[in-house]
């Protein structure tokens, strides 16, 4: 379970992964359940739910979407908030990787679009595969 930022007018998005350690094998299904607490008086006009990987480190960021869903009509938005759930099968690659200058991170993002025009994104990282972190110049 991961929680979003605390109040101060910001929504709170809580995500529950189907595995407590959030480490998934390749081709394994991932089941995501989430809860959204909106600030008083605010209303949503769209929700985007995505599963993606991105690179971090020294290089420019590369990002690839594995699953993306945008809910815009009133019925779909009210069906996806304040609680929602979605599931998707994970691919064979790329695996999560903690390198020295290249890192690959998998995450679930819930992005909320408010009627006022602002948006808020909540990101929750998980691991695909069990690759140990790289150690500088390791020689075996």
């Amino acid at each position: 379970m991961t929680a979003g930022e605390p109040s101060r007018g910001l929504p709170v998005v809580t995500v529950f992964f189907c595995k407590a350690d959030r480490i998934y094998e390749t081709l394994e299904p991932i089941d995501i359940r989430y809860q959204i607490s909106l600030p008083p008086g605010s209303s949503l006009r769209a929700i985007e739910r995505s599963v993606l990987w991105y690179t971090e480190g020294k290089g420019e960021e590369d990002l690839e979407i594995h699953f993306f869903e945008r809910l815009t009509d009133r019925a779909a938005v009210s069906g996806a908030a304040p609680e929602g759930r979605f599931a998707v099968g994970l691919p064979r690659s790329p695996l999560s990787y903690e390198g020295l200058i290249v890192k690959i991170r998998w995450c679930v993002r819930i992005r909320l679009f408010f009627a006022s025009g602002r948006d808020f994104v909540s990101e929750h990282v998980f691991d695909l595969g069990r690759i140990p972190a790289a150690i500088s110049g390791k020689v075996s």
Partner: peptide, 25 residues
């Protein structure tokens, strides 16, 4: 060897950095 390679912009230049992170003889 396993080499990590990252390409990034520095000002108007595009640079590439390489690091060998694993090696076995």
């Amino acid at each position: 060897e396993l080499e990590e390679q990252a390409t990034f912009r520095q000002g108007t230049d595009t640079r590439t950095e390489r690091v060998v992170v694993w090696r076995t003889s």
